[in-house]
């Protein structure tokens, strides 16, 4: 079942996406199809099955608290679209 346009607008706002009317319509249908597919899981009987918190049976992957050098600053900042005083320069947000 297709999502409502309002639902699409809400998700788009959370994702900071600007959609035109056609795109909203397209995504309402496509996202509806995706949710319908995922909803098939609800048809399964999961009584008595522990909820899964991770897809692999792996626990306690831990690292010792030992400092290793990070990356050189020039290298780490080399992808920044805007820089000033060795910092990322971004539009002001209050």
């Amino acid at each position: 079942m297709a999502l409502t346009i309002k639902e699409v607008e809400h998700v788009a706002l959370l994702a900071r996406l600007e959609l035109n009317a056609d795109e909203k319509q397209t995504f309402a249908e496509q996202m509806g199809t995706i949710l319908d597919y995922a909803n098939r899981l609800n048809e399964l009987d999961t009584d008595g099955i522990e909820p899964l918190s991770h897809i692999l049976p792996v626990f306690n992957v831990l690292r010792d608290d030992e400092v290793k050098p990070g990356s050189p600053r020039e290298e780490i900042l080399s992808n920044a679209p805007l820089l000033e005083d060795q910092q990322y320069k971004v539009p002001k947000i209050i």
Binding site: R63, D65, G70
Partner: peptide
């Protein structure tokens, strides 16, 4: 494994993991 020392020059205690580069994997500190 970047250091947590306070007061360093900006962006000198960073690596691809804590800078949010794509594809980097976190490993938890014991």
């Amino acid at each position: 494994s970047c250091t947590t020392t306070f007061g360093a020059e900006p962006n000198t205690q960073v690596c691809p993991v804590c800078s949010g580069f794509p594809g980097m994997l976190p490993v938890l500190n014991r």
